[in-house]
Nucleic acid binder design. Structure first.
Length: 299
DNA sequence: AAGTACCTCAACCGCAACCCG
DNA sequence: CCGGGTTGCGGTTGAGGTACT
């Protein structure tokens, strides 16, 4: 026996709401003091040929008092961006490999992104509005990596354990989306030598991916070793016992910046080249007091 | 002016959590 | 505790609008 339908789909109206329907629903809800009670039973009581879920959505996202639509302010933009970075998305899509990182530090990975949490911080905004605004406007402005890949891009991204994107190569400063990145909140950031940005001490960097070639993929300005673990159902064509699980480096001067390539290199690339397109996995990297820089291929 | 591509966002879908008898 | 009904919410769709050719 399957799930019981929430309504008789054959006998309910669908699609855009008419002004008359809006008026009926608004009138009913106001008479009830704004509390619907049972949404499933509401359409019959109110005299609407609509699914209860549709009524709920229409009320919460459109008819409810004090709802604001469109014209997000710069302050709201900043709040959304900041909360997005703090809360994190279930998956972060990065560049050409469609490599998806699940952020384990945010709790139950079975949840999706919490737009409602962000919307609750913005007066009169609905989660649907915030979600749409992010997906259609802010995401493009920030030009965050996506699953479609960005092979033309040659930026360098640093991502800390909160998955905030901090910096990029100065050669690309002219790009508008890169300017936006510099507006992201950057607490506890010390600017390092040369052209890179150094993160403050991070107890545990949970990130990222070797996106680059063997020579410039990961860099650090200090001696450190990085260990990681992969818990994966996929074999990547590499036996688990043969997969690299750590790299180390000493302080160096690669690229003239005092940064040393950690040299994830070819063994790591062999793994990610075999990743399935829907790869969803937790990759944990711990690197005390470390900085991680990921570059897309070709930089 | 017409055709096409792209964008926006209201609405729908499906799933999981929650509620309650 | 169990199970069915209800609610809440993120992901997705597609109609309508706009921009571009």
């Amino acid at each position: 026996m399957g799930r019981a339908p929430c309504c008789d789909k054959a006998n309910v109206k669908r699609g855009p709401w008419s002004p008359v329907e809006d008026a009926i629903l608004r009138s009913y809800m106001e008479a009830q003091g704004g509390a619907a009670g049972n949404w499933i039973a509401l359409p019959k009581k109110a005299g609407l040929r609509r699914c209860g879920k549709s009524c709920r959505l229409r009320w919460l996202n459109y008819l409810r008092p004090n709802i604001r639509h469109g014209n997000f302010t710069e302050e709201e933009d900043n709040i959304i961006i900041q909360l997005y970075n703090q809360i994190g998305s279930r998956y972060i899509h990065i560049y050409t490999y469609t490599l998806l990182i699940a952020l384990s530090q945010h709790g139950d990975l079975s949840y999706g992104f919490r737009w409602s949490v962000i919307a609750s911080q913005l007066s009169g905004r609905t989660d649907n509005d915030v979600k749409n605004y992010w997906n259609t406007k802010l995401k493009k402005r920030l030009s965050l990596p996506n699953s479609n890949g960005d092979t033309a891009s040659s930026s360098t991204w640093m991502i800390d354990y909160n998955c905030q994107v901090f910096q990029q190569l100065p050669a690309l400063e002219a790009r508008p989306e890169m300017e936006m990145l510099s507006n992201l909140p950057m607490p506890s950031i010390d600017y390092g030598p040369g052209l890179m940005v150094q993160a403050g001490p991070s107890p545990n960097i949970r990130s990222i991916i070797d996106l680059g070639s063997a020579s410039n993929s990961w860099v650090s300005n200090e001696s450190l070793s990085i260990n990681w673990s992969i818990h994966s159902p996929y074999s990547f064509g590499v036996a688990e016992s043969s997969r690299p699980t750590s790299v180390s480096c000493s302080q160096g001067a690669a690229g003239g910046h005092g940064w040393t390539d950690l040299g994830f290199g070819s063994s790591w690339n062999n793994i990610i080249n075999d990743l399935p397109s829907n790869y969803e996995e937790v990759l944990e990297i711990s690197a005390p007091n470390a900085l991680a820089v990921a570059s897309p291929k070709g930089v």
